[in-house]
Design a protein around this nucleic acid. Structure first.
Lengths: 323, 323
DNA sequence: TTGTAGGCGTTATCAG
DNA sequence: CTGATAACGCCTACAA
């Protein structure tokens, strides 16, 4: 019954009456190095037997894989899945495969994952960092494994990054709201934790508004009523700027309290989906382009991998739109 | 300058003055098979050199990895990320690592991914199938690689599955709406395509309502106004049942047209987040438990892998709630 | 407690 | 055009 002895390249070779070297050549597409006859024979046999190579063995022999690891800071953000799709869209045309890991907003998890990713000898790494520690990452680059950071920077200029213009777009938006008559901004965000995106956005706000209030929340265990108390709701000229879309949606959906006839829009923030637009068709938000960011990151990676240009370091900014 | 000759187990062995076997033993935790002295020495050296094993070599030698592949039908559903987190929560305590792939709702992509996952010799596979083809999957089980289907079944009873009670909960909900006075249901869904979840839900609806209308949409390129025309809006007793949360949210946000004073709730459907609740606090929806489903799937997988019970096949139903 | 050596499945170099 | 055969890095009987 145990006909399931896994077949190997040796089986294929014997069955075809050739050496494993020839089979290997066929498998790697060097068809010009063999007669059409043997090529045809191999094609037939491989199809019939449904033989596929053991990837671990290939990797060990070739010292490289065709897998690209993507480490998202937290996959429950729509932002992540969108840039992952962008990455995959580019990788796939080159025969590479993207796999997604979830750091779960936890530095310990992140370093554990970086470790295994490193050991697996992936062809490349796209990282949305949660820690600002370089050390783990340097192991990759020292090994010649290309790395590109997405969304967030960790401030050593030696890595490729794809980010958005957090500071500028926030500033632009804030100037707009300043003109509308607001005089204070309350920022609602998850803990800043030196995360570049958050730092830059807050800076953008403060570059325009003298008065700002920072409320750090844990969106896992959100105390919504507690939050309401902290808000300076009585002041109709107090703008709410929400850095996390999920939270923004929640507030928008409960925004009755926030209506003030003379102030057309009391809430804004960064968004990744259209949902806030559905909730408030006339509001303006800051929209990112995660898919494009992912695709860009993958392109940088691909030129480093395929074109053998390990020195190809790029810092690219994909602008967000306020509209 | 090229001090970056990658270090191997041999380097560690020589540096420690022992054989590679000893190092290997240390690496695999058989500390009782060596003197405390050498163990300490090894510990020190490995830490200093920051040596880590080449996972491909380990896999090749051991014929197994500690990676579990998760193939989501489409990661842009919140449902996916949630059950993935559930899976990881169980795997991690056993030292396994979950990696996520995206079939992108495409059968060709799915089979390509299954192929590479198979070749990579993952320890297990959690699959949310988009195709109903068994063949690819059988390669895994024939090889002794445990597979569990999540969310959707493909109707051969030989695989473990974790699903929800689609038919019953839908039926239950429909009976409720029937009592409220509705006499017709319009179902809005992506193409049914033999996908079990969709089939069962439609069946649940039709088991209660004699009159139903099925509208299949492509949520990628949604023609919202076209959709509105197809809807039998003039009939206030026509209930809208939306199978895709994203779409449901969109409709809820534009539901002014749907208000009919005498009919308290015109729209319902399956949901994975709280967002629809924010939009319509008094409405009732069908809520799934993706995290729990993921955790359950992972537990099945773990008993197959760790407990060496390859025959352990379970079909588990995690009920959804209508509330 | 430790070492030796064959094996895991493929690739790639070097002959023929 | 094809075939031996030494790597690739690690594990694991089997010995000692």
């Amino acid at each position: 019954m145990d006909k399931n002895k896994k077949l190997t390249i040796v089986d294929v070779a014997t069955k075809a009456g050739v050496s494993t070297a020839t089979v290997s050549r066929y498998l790697n597409g060097q068809l010009n190095q063999m007669s059409e006859k043997t090529a045809a024979k191999l094609k037939k046999i491989i199809e019939e037997t449904a033989y596929t190579r053991n990837a671990a063995a290939v990797q060990l022999a070739k010292q490289k894989s065709n897998l690209v690891a993507v480490l998202a800071s937290n996959i429950d953000e729509y932002f992540s899945s969108e840039y992952f799709k962008g990455i995959v869209s580019i990788l796939s045309v080159q025969g590479f495969i993207g796999v997604l890991f979830d750091s779960n907003s936890d530095t310990a998890t992140e370093s554990a994952l970086l470790e295994t990713v490193y050991n697996q000898k992936f062809a490349g790494l796209v990282l949305q960092p949660v820690s600002t520690d370089h050390n783990l990452i340097e192991k990759f680059t020292n090994d010649g494994v290309p790395v590109v950071l997405i969304d967030r920077d960790i401030g050593n200029g030696k890595l490729s990054t794809v980010t958005t213009n957090n500071f500028q777009v926030t500033k632009f938006a804030m100037e707009n709201f300043l003109d509308t008559g607001f005089n204070k901004v309350t920022i609602i965000t998850e803990p800043i934790n030196h995360i570049s995106t958050r730092v830059e956005r807050v800076a953008g706000i403060r570059s325009v508004f003298d008065h700002s209030q920072l409320i750090e929340v844990d969106s896992e265990h959100l105390d919504f009523s507690g939050l309401s108390n902290d808000l300076d709701i009585s002041n109709p000229k107090n703008l709410l700027f929400v850095l996390k879309e999920r939270l923004l949606i929640q507030l928008l959906a409960n925004s009755d309290v926030l209506n003030a006839p003379q102030m057309p829009q009391r809430i804004t923030g960064f968004i990744d989906t259209n949902i806030p637009k559905y909730l408030a068709p006339n509001y303006k938000f800051i929209q990112q382009s995660p898919f494009l960011m992912g695709a860009t990151a993958a392109e940088i990676l691909m030129t480093q991998i395929s074109e053998k240009q390990p020195e190809y370091i790029k810092q690219i900014v994909i602008p967000s739109k306020f509209e």
